[in-house]
Computed example of a mutant assay.
Amino acid sequence: MSPQTRLMWSIWRWPVALALLTVFGLLSALLGQGGIWWGLSWIALASPLAIVAWYVVVVEN
């Protein structure tokens, strides 16, 4: 892996992971037929918000 690729991956790793988690949450909410799927969608959609809030409160201070 080249240094430029490694740098790019270190920058985009978390945004890509949060985007995939959000897409999973949206799809599970739209396509799931209740039960476990709605719970998974709540967790998947709330996780990026919780991570951003944690970053703002803990890391920035």
Rank of each mutant, 00 (worst) to 15 (best):
R6A: 14
R6Q: 13
A53Y: 08
W54S: 10
G34L: 01
L7V: 11
V52M: 09
E60H: 14
E60V: 12
V58H: 12
S2R: 08
T22S: 07
G25M: 00
T5M: 13
V52S: 06
S2V: 03
V52T: 08
V56K: 12
M8T: 13
V23T: 09
I36M: 11
T22V: 04
P48T: 02
A29G: 08
V57D: 09
L18W: 04
L45H: 00
G39W: 04
S47A: 14
G35Y: 01
R13Y: 12
G39V: 03
L21V: 06
S10P: 05
N61I: 10
W42Q: 08
W14D: 11
M1F: 12
L20E: 04
W14G: 04
W37G: 01
R13D: 13
W14L: 15
I51G: 03
R6C: 07
L49Q: 05
L45W: 00
G32C: 03
M8A: 15
I43A: 04
S47K: 00
Q33M: 09
V23G: 06
F24H: 05
W9F: 15
W42E: 08
V57I: 13
M8S: 14
M8P: 06
G34R: 00
L40E: 00
S41Q: 01
Y55T: 11
G39S: 07
S2N: 15
Q4Y: 11
W42K: 08
L21C: 07
V16G: 07
R6E: 14
A29M: 06
A29S: 08
W9D: 12
Y55E: 10
Y55Q: 11
A19G: 11
P15E: 03
L27Q: 10
P3A: 09
A29V: 00
L45A: 00
T22G: 04
I36L: 14
L40D: 02
T5A: 15
G35F: 01
V23E: 06
L40I: 04
A50V: 08
I43F: 02
I51H: 03
V52F: 10
L7R: 15
S47D: 01
G35A: 04
I11G: 05
V56Y: 11
A44S: 07
R6T: 12
S28F: 01
S2G: 15
A53N: 05
V57L: 13
T22A: 05
A50L: 12
V16A: 12
W12I: 08
L45N: 00
L26C: 10
R13N: 13
V57H: 11
V58K: 13
P48E: 00
I51L: 11
P3Q: 07
W9Y: 14
R13K: 15
A29L: 07
T5C: 09
M8F: 15
L26F: 07
L49S: 09
P15A: 03
W37D: 02
N61T: 12
W42Y: 12
I51D: 02
I36Y: 10
G34E: 00
Q33S: 13
N61G: 15
L7H: 13
A19W: 03
L20Q: 04
G39A: 05
M1G: 15
Q33Y: 07
P15R: 03
T5D: 13
P48W: 01
W42A: 11
V58S: 12
A29Y: 04
S41A: 08
G25A: 02
V59D: 15
P15M: 02
G39Y: 03
